[in-house]
Amino acid sequence: MSVYSIKDLEHLSGIKAHTIRIWEQRYDLFSPQRTATNIRFYNDDDLKLILNIASLKNHGIKISKIVAMPEDVLADEVRKIEFEDLSHEDQISALTLAMIDLDEKSFASLLELSIEKMGFEKTMVEIIYPFMRKIGILWLTNAINPAQEHFISQLVRQKLIVATDHTQTNENGPLFLLFLPEGELHELGLLYANFLLRSRGARTVFFGQTVPLEALEEVYHKLNPDYLMTSITTSPESKDVQQYIKRLGTRFKNSIVYITGSRVVGQDIEIPTNVSVLNQFEDLNQITRDIAINKSQG
């Protein structure tokens, strides 16, 4: 079972830690355990309860009424609103509950409903990306079981691959090579970039995880791409990132190289002239919009 701090509960539910402490004392909501240094920690059941409370409270139900509900009634009330026109915050909470329970059916249903109402791109940007960012932070701090994170990542990965397969290839579009550095496994962002680029009229070759530069260089000279795109989140090591980026600029000097990831964004790194950093989703959207404009003008 995963272990959460009160800040983790705040982070996932949107309810301030101060408020959670007040409710804990006033309504005897939780019975948190304590570490050897007397710090409270909470379990999956506590997180599920605070998420359910947050969902009902967001729908105008008073906290005094919520805490008086038996557990089965509370669960029924949450299910009644689960497939309504939920706010983004409520959808993210519902996805989190599905993650905790490893409930693939519920997770998939929530995603399908959001895609039906908002479209695939808006669901990715406004629901999935904020959700994965929250989960990613908890995973990095060991607050959640890595198996839960991998469970969700694989479900999102499947959706991205299916959506990409349904895009039409534009044989005259600019060519992008998408890859992750050797040892880098976090590919969801790159998969989404692949989907966006193809849907906007670019040609893409997706190499995926842990690609040695020597192997990439060999196919580079065969394909002569216009662009390369990669993300650096965990590999290479921080001390080696500067040298890696320099090698990208030198080895692929006839192309524009787009890079992103936590080891690049906001870091004090010297960037070669043919390399550009994508600091946020909007940068990627701008690239794909430019491709779409050029395609229509061509």
Rank of each mutant, 00 (worst) to 15 (best):
L160A: 10
L160V: 10
L160G: 12
L160I: 12
L160H: 08
L160Q: 12
I161K: 14
I161P: 03
I161G: 05
I161H: 13
I161N: 09
V162M: 14
V162A: 14
A163E: 15
T164N: 15
T164P: 07
T164K: 14
T164E: 14
T164I: 08
D165W: 08
D165T: 09
H166W: 13
H166Y: 15
H166I: 12
H166L: 15
T167C: 15
T167R: 10
T167I: 10
T167G: 09
Q168G: 06
Q168S: 14
Q168V: 15
Q168H: 13
Q168A: 14
Q168M: 12
Q168L: 14
T169M: 07
T169F: 06
T169A: 07
T169L: 12
T169E: 11
T169W: 06
N170P: 05
N170L: 06
N170K: 07
E171N: 07
E171P: 01
E171H: 08
E171C: 00
N172P: 00
N172R: 10
N172M: 08
N172D: 13
N172C: 05
N172Q: 13
G173S: 10
G173E: 11
G173Y: 11
G173Q: 10
G173V: 10
G173N: 10
P174I: 12
P174A: 13
P174Q: 13
P174C: 13
P174N: 13
L175F: 10
L175M: 14
F176K: 08
F176Y: 14
F176V: 05
F176E: 07
F176T: 05
F176A: 08
L177P: 04
L177T: 03
L178Y: 01
L178A: 11
L178K: 01
L178R: 02
L178E: 03
F179W: 07
F179V: 01
F179M: 05
F179K: 04
L180N: 04
L180H: 03
L180S: 06
P181E: 04
P181A: 04
P181W: 04
P181K: 04
P181R: 04
P181S: 03
E182I: 00
E182A: 02
G183T: 00
G183E: 08
G183Q: 07
G183D: 07
G183M: 03
G183C: 00
G183A: 06
G183W: 01
E184L: 03
E184D: 02
E184W: 02
L185V: 02
L185D: 00
L185Q: 07
L185S: 01
E187W: 01
E187H: 01
E187S: 02
E187C: 02
E187L: 02
E187D: 09
E187G: 01
L188V: 03
L188P: 03
G189Y: 02
G189H: 01
L190E: 07
L190V: 12
L190A: 06
L191M: 14
L191I: 05
L191Y: 09
L191E: 13
Y192S: 06
Y192I: 03
Y192C: 05
A193W: 04
A193G: 08
A193T: 05
A193F: 13
A193Y: 07
A193C: 11
A193N: 09
